[in-house]
Design a protein around this nucleic acid. Structure first.
Length: 431
RNA sequence: GUGGGUAUAGCGUAGUUGGUUAACGCGUCAGUUUGUGGCACUGAAGAUCAUCGGUUCGAAUCCGAUUAUCCACCCCA
């Protein structure tokens, strides 16, 4: 087979055999969102480039080298690399902040980042995300973190650890950078190339470096947690207190340094060891400066995003159960033209009654039709031929047990009722 | 941007030191005498052996380049 063009690099087809996995995640996430009072929002796939530059941050990798940007005669636009910026933009543009605070939104989005592909990292990937705007209370942080955690738990995932940290506000960060640079400067020359440049721009990210040398140098480095301003420290302390009271397990991990510029104060990640090097399944935090940055009134806010491909990978590797794949309740085989018409009528009535019913559209002989019924996993089958039309009776066969039940065929509507009465109960008992 | 691995039917693989029509399993389709699936058996369709170029009498096999893909660095979901 030679296709004119094949799927693009970094993109994935989600095949029928996997759809139930996505549905599982979508349903669980949306259900839990409803419990938390978050409302769904759907926004365009692309935004003005400027929006991401301002929100995600000019110096971030995401903006500098990973965006899919289309430049035309009009202003340039970009396929969203994340969901927060667009959701906040929509929230402001539509005046949602004029409604009762806080605003709580959730969304499913596909996102685009042009990076080297590897396990758990694609050019186009999917996120479930949530944003809460209007509260600066640590209770909001606790609620958002719990929300994310509950989804992972609701999906049946195990061994997901919650790491939290506070990276302070611009005020305390200034002081901390000074101290951190002092600590690192004796070994500054020995740092790896990227960390050299981080030294000036964002020394905090050196703590996150994977290089053994940098790890060694960074050992015993002062932690942002110890240099928070009073307000930030109080905020973080209160958050931990609430999480403790709620019985949420977490580790304070001073090395969490989120790579998007808009984060302030609380940051957190849910990490799994089951899905390769890209173990962060969910990441988020507070971004108190973002709304003002993109033109809204100063408003505290926070949120998180969950990588759906990664969530599903973790579920697969842990053998978590998904919702069942859609099946077939009954297959109606037919013989001859008369019977075919009646069979199709019957199938339609069964469908109208809410059953998953199928029949032959291939012109197969009886044997072939039943083979097909078996392949698609039909729970029941029935054959309609001239003799059934004459006798007004039809035999319903349980495909798993082989058990047969004779039922009156006419009128067809009655058959549908009968079918409902007799078979639905045990049909759903089976696995 | 940087490393390393892999590329043979829809999927998973075999193909020995280069040697006729590229093999096998799964899957698909059809049949195994006429009205009942699963098992078994028979048959069929389906591959320019990723692409281009080179070495050779001869290349899936050796060499080179390109592309794709996977894994890792980086970064993030």
């Amino acid at each position: 087979m030679k296709l004119v063009a094949t799927r693009n690099k970094g993109a994935k087809d989600i095949l029928p055999a996997d759809i139930h996995k996505w549905r599982t995640v979508e349903q669980v996430a949306a259900d839990i969102a409803e419990c938390y009072g978050f409302k769904e929002i759907r926004i365009p796939t692309f935004e003005k480039t400027e929006l991401f530059v301002r929100s995600v941050g000019e110096t971030t990798d995401v903006v500098q080298k990973e965006m899919f940007t289309v430049t035309g005669t009009e202003s340039s636009f970009t396929l969203r690399p994340e969901g927060t910026a667009g959701v906040i933009r929509a929230l402001l543009q539509n005046g949602l902040m004029n409604e009762a605070a806080p605003q709580k939104l959730f969304y499913f989005v596909n996102c685009f980042r042009h990076e080297n592909v590897q396990k758990g990292r694609l050019w186009e990937f999917h996120q479930f995300g949530a944003e809460m705007a209007g509260s600066h209370s640590p209770a909001a942080d606790a609620e958002v973190i719990c929300f994310a955690g509950d989804i992972l738990k609701g999906l049946g995932l195990q061994n997901i650890s919650l790491h939290i940290n506070s990276i302070g506000c611009p005020k305390c960060r200034e002081e901390y950078y000074k101290v951190l640079r002092e600590f690192l400067s004796p070994n500054r020359e020995k740092l790896c190339g990227t960390c050299q440049s981080r030294f000036e721009k964002n020394p905090m990210r050196i703590l996150d470096c994977k290089s053994d040398i940098c790890k060694g140098i960074a050992e015993g480095a002062p932690l942002i947690t110890d240099y928070l301003c009073d307000e930030c420290r109080e905020h973080f302390k209160r958050l931990c207190g609430i999480l403790d009271e709620m019985g949420v397990e977490y580790v304070i991990d001073p090395k969490i340094v989120r790579g998007l510029d808009y984060y302030t104060k609380t940051v957190f990640e849910f990490i799994s060891d089951d899905i390769g090097a890209q173990g962060t399944i969910c990441g988020g935090g507070r971004y108190d400066g973002l709304i003002e940055e993109i033109g809204g009134a100063p408003t505290p806010a926070l949120g998180f995003a969950m990588g759906l491909e990664r969530v599903i990978m973790a579920m697969e590797s842990q053998g978590v159960e998904f919702m069942p794949e859609p099946g077939c309740d009954i297959y109606i085989a037919s013989m001859g033209e008369n019977a075919q018409g009646q069979a199709m009528k019957l199938i339609r009535e069964l469908r109208e009654a809410g059953h998953r019913a199928q029949g032959d559209v291939m012109g197969r002989e009886l044997r072939g039709q039943l083979k097909y019924a078996d392949k698609i996993g039909a729970a029941y089958s029935a054959v309609i031929g001239d003799s059934e039309l004459e006798s007004g009776k039809v035999t319903l066969k349980n495909m798993k047990s082989g058990e047969k039940t004779e039922l009156p065929l006419l009128p067809l509507a009655d058959f549908v009722d009968k079918f409902t009465d007799i078979s639905m109960a045990d049909m759903f008992d089976e696995d």
